[in-house]
Design a protein around this nucleic acid. Structure first.
Lengths: 134, 134
DNA sequence: ATAAACGGTAAAGCGAACTTGAAGGTCAAT
DNA sequence: ATTGACCTTCAAGTTCGCTTTACCGTTTAT
C-alpha cells in the first residue's frame, strides 16, 4: 500500500504520515520501502495509525504518544502502566474542565453585570459610565 | 515608574510588557519615555495591564484584545457591544467545555475497560492479550 | 511521447504568546 | 573608577502539530 492509499484508509494526509514517521511515531516495521524507494505499508500500519488517532483524540500529545510507543517497543507496556497513564490523563482533562468552568462562571458574572447596566441605560435613557470588561 | 516596577505591580515580566507594547495593547498615553529613553509608566498603566490580564483570563486572545482596545479608542465601545462580545466568548467557552466532557467520557470508558482487564489478569494470574489503548 | 498523477526530500511557514540572546547605554553605590 | 543592576533594541528561538513550498524522480494512461 502506497502513502496516499494509507492516507485514505486512515483519514490522514500523506504529508502528515511522513511527518509522523519523522517524529518517530512509526517504528521500523511500518517504514518499509519498495524498489523505487516508495514507502510501502501493510494493514498493520492502518491499524497502528488509527490507534494513534484514537490516543490523540483522548488528549495525548504526539510527544507523549512517542514515549508510549517507545516504552511498548522496549518492555511491552504492561497493562498496569496503561491504566496509570489513562488515569493521569483523565485527571489532566478534569483539571482543564474545571479551569474552563471557572472562566465560564467569571464570564457569566461579567455578562450579568453588563446586561443589567445595559438595561438600566436603555430604560433610563441616560448613558451609565462604566469600564470595559471590569 | 520604570518597567520592572510595573512588572512587579502587574505580575508580568518586563519583556512581556515590551511585547504587549509592540503588539499594540498599550496606547500612546501608556508609552511615555523619560529623558534617558527609559519607559515611564503611571498608575493608569498598572490598571490597564491588570484589566488586560483579566480579559485574557476569561478567554480572550491578545488579538481580540487589541481589536477591543482599538474599537474602544475609536468609538468608545458601546455597552451593547461589550455584552455581545461577552456572550460570544461565553458560547465559545461552553463549546470547549463540552469537547472536554466528551474526551473525558471516552477516557473514562477506556480506563474502565483496562482496569477490568487488569483485575482479571491479576486474579487469573494469566496475562490477557490486549492492545495498548483500544 | 507526453502529460497527469503520484512518489521523494529538505526546509520554511503558521499561530499564539512569549522568552532568550546579543550587544549595547545608564545609573547608583562603593 | 568600576562593578552590578537596570534600561534599550532587534532578532531569533520556543512549543505543537502540522501544512506549504520548491524541486526533483517515477508510473500510468492516452
Amino acid at each position: 500500500m502506497k502513502i496516499h492509499a494509507l492516507a485514505q484508509r486512515t483519514g490522514l494526509t500523506a504529508p502528515t504520515i511522513r511527518f509522523y514517521e519523522q517524529e518517530g511515531l512509526l517504528d521500523e516495521r511500518h517504514v518499509r520501502r519498495s524498489e523505487n524507494n516508495y514507502r510501502d505499508y501493510s494493514e498493520a500500519t492502518v491499524e497502528h495509525l488509527l490507534t494513534v488517532k484514537k490516543i490523540q483524540a483522548v488528549g495525548f500529545t504526539l510527544a507523549e504518544l512517542k514515549q508510549v510507543i517507545r516504552e511498548d517497543e522496549a518492555s511491552g507496556l504492561p497493562l498496569s502502566r496503561v491504566v496509570e497513564l489513562l488515569r493521569l490523563k483523565l485527571e489532566e482533562i478534569e483539571r482543564k474542565k474545571q479551569e474552563l468552568e471557572q472562566v465560564g462562571a467569571h464570564l457569566t458574572l461579567m455578562l450579568a453585570k453588563k446586561s443589567a447596566l445595559l438595561e438600566a441605560e436603555q430604560r433610563g435613557k441616560t448613558a451609565v459610565p462604566y469600564r470595559i470588561f471590569t
